[in-house]
Structures are given as structure tokens and as C-alpha cells.
């Protein structure tokens, strides 16, 4: 492959864009996947456990 300026720019403008979109979509799917909701809910509550004992 010819590693010149135009090639790098072309790669950045095409694959760079797809990479950004794919990643955004991937993150949104993970965040809104219904079965993950419970896990997120537990995660945000668990740090508040006042007595901070070992998990049984």
C-alpha cells in the first residue's frame, strides 16, 4: 500500500467515521440492553452500603 498523505486522509475519513459510528452504536446497545439494567441498578446502589461488609 502506498503510504502517502492522500491514503492516510482517505483511510481516516472513511474507516475513521465507520469506527466512530460502530462504537457509538455498540455502546448504546450495551447500555440499553434490557437485561443489563438490573446489573447497573445494583452497581450504583451497592457502593452506598454503609456498613461495607464483605459480600455474603
Amino acid at each position: 500500500m502506498n503510504f502517502d498523505h492522500d491514503t492516510v486522509v482517505g483511510f481516516t475519513k472513511s474507516w475513521g467515521l465507520f469506527y466512530l459510528i460502530a462504537m457509538a452504536v455498540g455502546v448504546l446497545i450495551y447500555v440499553f440492553w434490557p437485561s443489563n439494567l438490573e446489573r447497573f441498578h445494583a452497581a450504583k446502589k451497592n457502593i452506598l452500603d454503609e456498613d461495607d461488609k464483605p459480600w455474603k
Binding site: 455502546v27 448504546l28 447500555v31 452497581a43 450504583k44
Partner: peptide
Amino acid sequence: YYLPKRAGRPIYSYRLSIISFW
């Protein structure tokens, strides 16, 4: 970590925190 701990309230939206992270 410290803000929810000190406020005694869980973070408003955990999902939003993940989106902002990425």
C-alpha cells in the same frame, strides 16, 4: 465514587455515566 457516597444517594443515571465514559 465520593460524590454519591457523601451525598448518600446513588448516581442519577448509571447508563448516562457509561455513555459519557465511552
